[in-house]
């Protein structure tokens, strides 16, 4: 009997990490100054890409392989410790 291939569209968990959306940035990228950061975590919480990491104050940063440069982290940071700089 012929073998039937069951391709029902199952993808590997979190395989989107293969997709480096950082190449989408056209204008600016965030620079995490790590000077006045109070570790409030809000930038990490609201990054649409989920590409910000950090634990304690002045350790927050983003992964430019994925950051699309939306600039929301810079707008929300209560300490203005994230600056958008030209690509």
């Amino acid at each position: 009997m012929a073998k039937v291939k069951h391709d029902i569209g199952i993808a590997k968990p979190r395989s989107s990490l293969n997709n480096k959306t950082g190449s989408w940035r056209t204008e600016a990228r965030p620079k995490f100054l790590q000077k006045n950061c109070i570790g409030c975590k809000i930038c990490l919480l609201i990054c649409p890409e989920g590409c910000i990491t950090g634990e304690a104050k002045n350790t927050y940063n983003c992964d430019y392989l994925y950051c699309k440069g939306c600039g929301e982290c810079a707008v929300i940071c209560p300490k203005k410790d994230i600056e958008m700089v030209k690509e």
């Binding site: 979190r14 989107s16 990490l17 293969n18 997709n19 480096k20 959306t21 989408w24 609201i46 990054c47 649409p48 890409e49 989920g50 590409c51 990491t53 992964d63 392989l65 994925y66 699309k68 440069g69 939306c70 600039g71 929301e72």
Partner: peptide
Amino acid sequence: MAEAFKTLFSPGHTACAGCGQAI
């Protein structure tokens, strides 16, 4: 490397920059 991101909704998705629904 993947484990750096402590989220169940990983980077590399294709929403527009700044998408509220992604957040």
